[in-house]
């Protein structure tokens, strides 16, 4: 459990800053955009900064409550890590099947599943049907 207020204030401050950056960046747009899209960008930047500033003040005046940021830190960071590794493997052209099988198994194990037979049957069936239906039959591009 963590206090909600510091996070809320940090986010609001960040969005005030981002809004100002967006607003000022419109000045560097080409001349012909100044009377059209630059106006729109300024509106978005200003709207964001003003709303975030109001949110900052509201959050500042409110008493802090505690929130559960992570239900389970290991699961959260483990899942994000595995997704990232999965993407890297796909980027390295290892192959869809070769990258996906370890990803599926590792994620399941991480989340506490231990029934190997069910895991093997489910994942192989899903993978094969995905490959046949989407890739072979429908020719949906696979990573």
């Amino acid at each position: 459990m963590v206090h909600k207020k510091p996070g809320e204030l940090a986010l609001a401050a960040f969005f005030v800053f981002l809004g100002i950056v967006i607003y000022t960046s419109a000045a560097s747009f080409p001349e012909r955009a100044q009377t059209s899209t630059a106006l729109y960008v300024r509106f978005v930047g200003m709207g964001m900064a003003v709303l975030a500033a109001i949110d900052f003040v509201i959050s500042l005046r409110r008493s802090s409550v505690r929130i559960e940021l992570f239900t389970n830190k290991t699961y959260f960071f483990g899942l994000v890590g595995l997704m990232t590794v999965y993407m890297v493997l796909l980027l390295l052209n290892v192959g869809f099947m070769i990258s996906t099988i370890p990803f599926l198994v590792a994620t399941s194990l991480l989340l506490g599943y231990r029934k190997w037979k069910v895991m093997a049957v489910s994942f192989v069936t899903i993978l094969l049907s995905t490959y046949v239906v989407f890739f072979r039959l429908l020719q949906v591009p696979m990573p």
């Binding site: 996906t100 990803f103 994620t107 989340l111 899903i126």
Partner: peptide, 9 residues
Amino acid sequence: SLLIPVVCM
């Protein structure tokens, strides 16, 4: 634990 990996895939 079975659903999440498949949805992610």
